[in-house]
């Protein structure tokens, strides 16, 4: 049974900026949770605290009965293997090939010499090929990451994260560096794979429309605390005012009926598979 539980999470950066202010969050089903909020609301800090790329000041983070906040360095490395991370700037190792980048998701499981010689097990390599197929990058295994387009790089980023066979996906602004069409394709792919694998995903996102379109659940952060937690339909102008401050939201909120929304996503997937 999956369970991510964040309680009373506080992060104060050196210099006094308080990014998180006692945040509580529980994810206990394999769902796509989008996290919205203005810049500086603590979205990135939240995600980075969960795998402790940023050290929380106080509070507790528990993943599947494992207290992440209390782990030793070695224990932390083991915990990180269970959390796949996807970044805004893709963060691939530029001079390595697509395959090497994908296989880096197994770095927590191989020893130093295997990592140095890139000697991964045949099942790992087979799985990497399978993932590259699923993200639509067949035949790219020898291409260097710096030769890819933004959308392609993010697909490698997704494959790398899934290569870890994670219990949880931590996704930081996956579409902010992409054009609107590619952004939709990437979000669709990400959510599809998360659902297929039964992996819950925590996705930071700026674009409220995208958040509504793809999320099972939306969490709104304001001033480092949880200001909203609900479904896309519950995201009213009043809620957005509470999260972002006063603004005219009438053009932002799209409220398709549940049926048409599902249909749009289905159509999109068909288009995608036809194209790929």
């Amino acid at each position: 049974m999956l369970m991510l539980s964040v309680s009373k999470l506080v992060k104060t950066y050196p210099g006094g900026v308080r990014a998180l202010n006692g945040l509580d969050l529980t994810v206990d089903t394999p769902q796509v949770v989008t996290v919205i909020g203005s810049s500086g609301a603590g979205k990135s800090t939240l995600i980075r605290c969960i795998n402790r790329l940023v050290e929380p000041t106080s509070g507790r983070i528990v993943l599947n009965d494992l207290d992440v906040t209390a782990l030793s360095r070695r224990g932390l490395r083991r915990a990180r293997r269970r959390m796949g991370m996807i970044f805004q700037e893709y963060n691939l190792v530029e001079r390595l090939t697509v395959m090497e980048n994908t296989l880096s998701g197994r770095l927590g499981y191989v020893n130093f010499w295997q990592a140095y010689r890139r000697k991964y097990s045949p099942p790992d390599i087979a799985r990497a090929f399978e993932l590259l197929h699923r993200v639509g990058l067949d035949g790219y295994e020898y291409t260097r990451a710096d030769a890819l387009s933004g959308g392609q790089r993010q697909r490698v980023g997704i494959a790398r994260a899934l290569m870890q066979q994670p219990d949880l996906l931590l996704v930081d602004e996956p579409t902010a560096s992409l054009d609107p069409k590619t952004a939709r394709q990437i979000m669709r792919l990400l959510c599809k794979l998360a659902h297929e694998n039964g992996t819950p995903a925590l996705i930071n996102i700026h674009d409220v429309g995208l958040a509504q379109e793809f999320a099972d659940r939306i969490v709104g952060l304001a001033d480092g605390v949880n200001a909203f937690d609900g479904t896309a339909d519950e995201l009213t102008p009043e809620v957005l005012n509470a999260i972002y401050g006063e603004e005219d939201w009438s053009k932002t909120i799209n409220r398709p009926t549940a049926d048409s929304n599902k249909k749009m996503q289905r159509d999109g997937l068909e288009r995608e598979s036809a194209a790929g």
């Binding site: 795998n51 490395r77 293997r81 970044f87 390595l96 197994r106 927590g108 130093f112």
Partner: peptide
């Protein structure tokens, strides 16, 4: 070095020596 690549490899659970050979070395070698 762009910090993102280091961060990404660290986030996979890689130890420091693996970080060196997987993220630092390929970027530095040429």
């Amino acid at each position: 070095m762009p910090p993102g690549q280091l961060e990404a490899i660290k986030a996979t659970g890689a130890s420091f020596p693996k970080l060196l050979v997987y993220a630092v070395q390929p970027q530095m070698l040429p």
